[in-house]
Nucleic acid binder design. Structure first.
Lengths: 146, 146
DNA sequence: CTTGACCCTCAACCACACTACAGGGTTTAG
DNA sequence: CTAAACCCTGTAGTGTGGTTGAGGGTCAAG
């Protein structure tokens, strides 16, 4: 009875999508102001915002990007890649920039992961941890070639 | 003449380590207040802070962690793992928590990377990008099992 | 021995990303 | 029909992570 009716978009109110994404209603309105969400349709009589269910996924994406150290501005740029379908070459090069960014983050996390693993492994059995060469790895990355 | 004299720690002033790490002098003092850096030695006559060169690596680690979405508090916890050498079991379990955190971040970044790659690939040749299933991937992750 | 670059403390200020009212209208369950 | 639960706009406040400035002392070159 629910999945036979695919023609209807069954729009959700702001409270529903906020709850679905695990964030506050105020935050959703904030993201709209900051252009991370497009302006939604409105109920003509009440003025209530009406969202397609896919908005929940979009909000979850924003939350994930945030946890990964992307600013809202950067996250908006990621989301805008899909909208800029007019100029494909541009999208490609922007996407590649973002891919490089993402790969750098992954590499840095992997270095931290390795250091933490070695740290956890080395711990029981040694008394002097303070000048352990393993820990130096935690504090050293590739030299910045900026 | 430089590497034969390993006995001398040749301490650096705050300006030098800030420049070495690519951050501001004020930020270094801020990190000291926030206990991400231990209180450094001081020149007895001038009161100037004197840092061991390894401080630069520590600051670079902080910068990296920040870019990866760790808060200063979380970064301090990472750095404190080495200091807590007293209680090894504790260090191990804390390190494992952090490893799990780091692996989640890596997995999320890899999903984003994959989505971006497919986006860049799919771009030239199609006219309608808006309801492309590839883009749905960018907006969808594993359901939160929180 | 001065002048400019550097350092000190302390306090105020800033941007970002929310979060919480105030003061109102709407919807819905009983 | 009323009361709770929801929604609206707008403005103000919060926490984090710095940044800037005032008012001063210190060091290195000429």
């Amino acid at each position: 009875m629910a999945d036979t009716n695919i023609g209807a978009p069954r729009p959700l109110t702001i409270g529903k999508i906020a709850q679905g994404a695990g964030i506050g209603v105020e935050t959703v309105r904030y993201y709209e102001r900051e252009k991370l969400l497009p302006k939604p349709a409105r109920d003509p009589s009440s003025g209530y915002r009406l969202y397609p269910p896919s908005t929940i996924a979009r909000l979850q994406f924003i939350a994930r990007a945030k946890r990964l150290g992307f600013t809202l501005r950067e996250t908006r740029e990621l989301l805008d890649l899909r909208r800029a379908s007019v100029d494909c070459g541009n999208v490609r090069s922007r996407a590649h920039e973002k891919i490089i960014q993402v790969r750098e983050k992954i590499a840095e996390l992997q270095r931290i992961e390795g250091a933490l693993l070695r740290l956890a492994d080395a711990c029981p059995g040694v008394g002097e941890l303070d000048n352990c060469p393993i820990l130096a790895a935690l504090e050293q990355g590739e030299p910045d070639a900026d």
